[in-house]
Design a protein around this nucleic acid. Structure first.
Lengths: 202, 202, 202, 202
DNA sequence: TCCTAAACGAGACGGTACGTCCTGTCTTAGT
DNA sequence: ACTAAGACAGGACGTACCGTCTCGTTTAGGA
């Protein structure tokens, strides 16, 4: 979220990212103003406007920095278990401070192009990771051959975002278990009808 | 979205709803201000604040009024066909002016309680209709017995909202076909393994 | 400096004029900002911008209000004495707080049309008063018949403003006495050359 | 308006003076910023701040450079004619681009010490020239013996600046003729009452 | 039919934040 | 060593809306 012509003050950048994060945690992204970020960071407004085109851009950078500390997609060899782990991680993350910011960015993305692009970019990375894991699982015979993996990602994460963003229900861990259980027939290869080994067992 | 003590001017109410709708169509909900609505409606700001607590409340009323003109959930007896019809309707609606407003309301709902409640209220109705249709289909043996129907709704609409709100892909009709195809094993009863016809006649 | 549609808050107007005056006294017109005026007056910036087009306009109103408390041009019957009195008053006024503001307005008038018009308007009144007094003196035979009275005003006040604005010398009372003394031959009717009564004595 | 430690880039100095002059001509001194001067001169702001303490200082240097191209005070032997010539030159100059800059510097001088000192310095030279010419005229019997020549300068230039800076009237050549005509009795020696020719031959 | 209380239009008000502009200082590279 | 370039903290600008608050002026019902 910025070009970096070496002349730039890294100290100011850090202060801005931290101030923005702190303010969003305290009052939410929508109630966080650029003036307040500048004030808390001990920085001039101009310094912010010089490097970021909007409030959303700052927070996108915050999210990216923090997200890059993640490990990759879980891989125990058992795709259903890994999906359960990962979706549980996601739902847990959504309840944290970072989740609140992410929610605000998604809201902003409905209006601002900058936010929309940023959100898409971040999601693209996450989706690609998930698709890669699913591809590996498919090679291991754990996922139906005929399933478009991008669609699979929508099936898995669609219900999470639907629930989370629209507040149609509480987003408890049992909920995600139910979703994955329900999706199992769509994800896994069909049973070979009595004879032959069960789908997962080696 | 208002008490209605008979003294209220119906003319003003209509003018406000129309002005609000028109402005949102032209510039989006976020860029629509109460001052602009008042100006276009030829109404005092006070009149708006008297009857609606926020911009979102006005638009929620607009959406409800327009939505009430809908027919109910399609019911041809074939649940998969009806789901295809209905999801196609929804995705088509999302591309219209009303869809843009709905998108703005969902964004507002991430921040404002009023918007959140309104969105939930409207969605509740839609979900209940869908659940009712699914229940009927289950009774007709078209839906797995062990499927929680509220979860089923999430499986079906989650991908739509995920795609639409997060912009992860274009939201074409073939996309929804793929989603429903992929979901088929999870929605329909399992084949009876050899005996009896397969679920989709062929 | 403002239309007055009765809805206007007289309290705010007074507070603004007083705050503006006070701040100009303390830091000078140039260093007085509209934000500071608003803050000191306990008023929103918008309220100032609603009624005055610029800082200069506010101070022009201050000057006019205060100036209207003046008595008219002195008139003892002796024009030279009255000119001495009046120019002494003016030079004294120039050293006061109001004088400092007037100086600032004249500076502003070199740039802004609003200030220029206001300054001209105020000066027009003062000049007209002086011309009227001179006309009366001319009728009394104390001023040369062939002297254009508007020019006379320039002769009298030109040196005052020249000295004051350009800082070419200290502007002491003796200075103005010298100026008036030097101007005497230009203002008064020529002596009737030995025979006849002296110019002023009845 | 600068120390000159030999290391200084004469090219930069010229570029700055020209840029400053050009910008003042185009938009006026008040609207000319140091940033704009630096940009047009192709020079860093630092370079300007190193050598001049303020915008006014730059323009004072511009004015002094251009003014030094003047010839001295006119001297035909006839003081009234020379005054007419010189005041006409001045009023003509005031309408030029340099006049506009001079006007801006006088405005600045009401606020800034640097500008005030510069304006005084420049005026001091002009006044001294005029006083010298008047002294010569007095020796030639063309100016009253008892007239303080510094006061005489105020009488002559006061009306010009009064008119020019305060905009009380158009500053046409006939205006200056009227002023000098009106001042004649104050400047010239009194007629010797009967014997000898009247001051203006006729 | 009149009276009265509400709802209404109009818009001033105190505020907050916006994004821009310029100030004068400072830091970093490049001659 | 001086320069060009430009980042930086600071602060005022004038604008746009916010939501609240009088103002008279309709206007609709109950007396």
């Amino acid at each position: 979220m910025s070009t970096a012509p070496s002349r730039r003050s890294e100290k100011a950048r850090q202060a801005i990212l931290e101030a923005a994060f702190g303010l969003c945690v305290e009052r939410g992204l929508a109630a966080t103003t650029i003036e307040a970020i500048a004030a808390r960071a001990g920085v001039a407004k101009t310094t912010i406007y010089r490097w970021w085109p909007s409030k959303a851009a700052i927070l996108l950078e915050v999210v990216e920095v923090r997200r890059s500390a993640d490990g990759g997609y879980p891989d125990t060899g058992d795709i259903m278990a890994d999906l359960a782990t990962q979706t549980a991680n996601v739902t847990r993350l959504f309840e944290t401070e970072l989740g609140a910011i992410w929610r605000g960015l998604i809201a902003a993305a409905q209006t601002e192009d900058i936010a929309a692009e940023g959100v898409r970019r971040i999601l693209r990375g996450a989706i690609d990771e998930c698709v890669a894991r699913l591809a590996k699982a498919r090679d291991a015979g754990q996922i139906r051959e005929d399933l478009d993996l991008e669609i699979a990602v929508e099936l898995i994460y669609g219900p999470i975002y639907h629930t989370w963003l629209l507040g149609t229900r509480a987003m408890s861990p049992p909920f995600m278990d139910s979703v994955l259980d329900a999706l199992r027939p769509s994800l896994q290869p069909p049973p070979s009808c009595g004879v032959g080994p069960p789908p997962v067992a080696g």
